[in-house]
Computed example of a mutant assay.
Amino acid sequence: MASLLELPDSWLCGIVPGSGTGACSMALQNLLGPFPVETFLSDNFSQYWANEIDTLALAPQNRHVCAYGDFPNTSTIDPNHDIVLVLNGTNSGVCPPDLDWISPDRAGLVIADAVSAAFTRHIDSDRIDVLCWSWQKALGGEGGHGMIALSPRALARLMAHDRKPVARLMRLHNPDGSVNKAFFGGRTISTPSMFAVADIHSALDWAEACGGLPALLNRVASNYAVMADWVNSTPWIDWTCTNPAARSTCSITLRLVREQLAAGEAEDDGKIAAGMIRLLEAEGAAFDIWSYGDAPPGFRIWAGPTVETEDLAILCEWLAWAYSKTCEQHTTRSDIRA
């Protein structure tokens, strides 16, 4: 899996329990502490990690926030601090536009939640020290199993600093403080399901047969292009992420835009979106595309490498049909109430 992600040979990679969430929590608890940490709140999971850092008193924290649907400003980063960020926000549809603002000569570590970024976007390993992801996202594997990859700089931190107590299930080191190399050599902390192992092996074989990481990224780009063309030509839909540079190409988050309605009818957008989704589910055309709870009324569509571009094109046609049908029903009910 590390090879498919094109991670350097000097990195160590291990399987962890608890999916990508377990991997990220493990990284925070084992590595944070020597320096203050900069967190970037671009989606709900980045908020989750910021809260965990405070709750467990892992390190002094400087939170960078912004409006929903954008990525925070990065111009005030201290290269002597650690950084925690999410590389692809599945609920907000937001990514950091680039990682050029992270200094190659930094003193701090960069811990990246890449749960849905792995295999969907290029990850600059020169700007990242800890990469956390799961089997279940981009390659469609089973949930419950995650991965953590550590750079040489992260390994040096793991051996060097005075750490707070870490629960056994989350511990990346031996009792004497040395790195647990057995863990990174295939001896898992908890035994993964062999069915899940076989499933992810099948997914990896498929990815290699497609042409490896470049081919996966091309599939994501094609999927995004179809969705972008449809959004650009459809007046009643728009991106939740208003900043094109920070927009995810695989986590498609859309909001309703109905400027033709009279003032005061904006609250009906939630009803329109809900009606559309119920119609699509009844027709078997789309499932689980509700926007995240904190997002504006709309849709959340996965466009990762396992999704066929042709299917997304068909979904756009279904969305147009469902919008027309739902608006018609909504107008009829409003007329009856009047």
Rank of each mutant, 00 (worst) to 15 (best):
K164S: 05
E308M: 11
V231T: 10
R300G: 02
C66H: 05
Q260K: 14
P36V: 01
L319Y: 04
A114K: 05
A286M: 09
H201Q: 15
D269T: 00
M159I: 09
D70C: 08
E38N: 14
R127L: 06
D269G: 05
L213P: 14
M276C: 13
P244D: 02
D78Y: 05
T309M: 12
R258F: 01
V166D: 10
D78I: 03
A117E: 10
A245L: 14
D311L: 10
T120P: 11
L28P: 01
I277W: 06
L254M: 07
I123F: 10
W239E: 12
R333W: 12
D288S: 15
H173I: 03
P97G: 05
I336Q: 12
V307M: 12
A322K: 11
D105E: 15
D82A: 02
A313Q: 14
T234A: 09
D9C: 12
T191A: 13
Y292E: 14
R255S: 06
L31I: 07
T306V: 10
R337C: 06
D162E: 15
N243C: 05
I102T: 02
A338V: 11
W135F: 13
P214V: 04
L204F: 09
V220H: 12
D176Q: 04
T331M: 04
S134C: 10
S178Y: 05
T21S: 12
V84Y: 00
D311T: 04
E259Y: 04
M227L: 15
G18P: 13
E259M: 07
